[in-house]
Each structure stands twice: as C-alpha cells, then as structure tokens.
Amino acid sequence: MSLNDIVFIALAGITLLAALGVVLSRNIIHSALFLVLTFLGVAGIYFQLNAGFVGLVQIMVYAGAISVLIIFAIMLVMDVEPDQTNLFNQSTPTIMAGGYVSVLLAAGLAGAIWFTKWPLSAVQVGDQGVEKLAGMLLGPYVVSFEVAAILLLVAVFGAILLAKGVEDK
C-alpha cells in the first residue's frame, strides 16, 4: 500500500463518516457542520487528484460560503429545541419508500461507475491546471461561462427584490 492509497483511504473515510454524520445527527446544526467536513473531504480528494484549483473552489464556495448560508438559514427558521430538529421519520411506509429510493440510487450509481470505461488521458496536466482552465473558460466556452454569470446576476437581483418586498402604495 503506497502513501497515495493511505491518503485516499483516510480522505474517503472522513468523507463517508461525515456524510453519515449529516444523515444520522439529531441536531440539524451538527448535520450542517458535518456537511462542511464532507465538503472538505471531497476537496481533499480533488487535491489528491492533482486538481488543486477545483479543490480550493470546493473549499471556498461550498465549505466557506454555501454551508454558512445553510447554517444561517437553519438558525433563522429554527424555533424548537436544537436536539429535535433532525429527527427520524417513524412511520413504516416512509421508511420503506426512503429505503427503496436510496437502494435504487445506490445501485444505479454503482452500476454506472462499474460499467463505464474510464479512459486515462496520456497527457499529463502537471500543475498547469489553472492556466488551462482559464484558457478554456475564456476561450472556447466563453459564452456558457458568461451565461452562467448572467444567471447568477439575475438570481442576485431576484433575491434582493424578494428581500426588499413590494412597497405599499
């Protein structure tokens, strides 16, 4: 077992355990914090795959911003005891349905991973990932990049409008 394998197992283990923590915590704030740990584990796997930029974007956007947003949203709407915010559903039909969906999803994903061929590119990216990515985003894919930017801008405007509300006349 090489050093690489040990690091991967550690990262994957952290990610999976944290993901389980998200699902199994009874306190929704704990769930949200476990989610941050999951994001960080995934970012670590990106780093290991030599995709440092993607990993850092994962940390900054997901662990640093989105999760804070989630925690804020939870704090703002929560009005019960923290220990009873993320309880399990006790009714049998719900458990059955949830189990069915999750087994189906897991089987589908496993099948997709198993049967897909993963061609390895002979070209080594090295640590020029950012430069390549910049060239791609502002070269061949500039239109989709800009469209995504405009979409986000529209979303921001929408949020501001919603927050301001309609003035009474």
Binding site: V36, G52, F53, L56, V57, I59, M60, G64, I71, Q128
Partner: peptide, 25 residues
C-alpha cells in the same frame, strides 16, 4: 509552492467563518 498559492490562502482563510460560527452557536 502551490501553483494556486494565492487562491489557497484566500479560500482557507474563508473557512475561519465556520469556526467563529461554531463558537457563537
């Protein structure tokens, strides 16, 4: 000497919000 060193600094720095939020909560 990361090829994304400066970005590393910014994104790791952004994580400290989580710690303060944890302390506050």
């Amino acid at each position: 000497d990361l090829n994304v060193g400066l970005f590393y600094f910014i994104s790791i720095g952004s994580l400290s919000t989580i710690a303060l939020l944890m302390a506050g909560w």
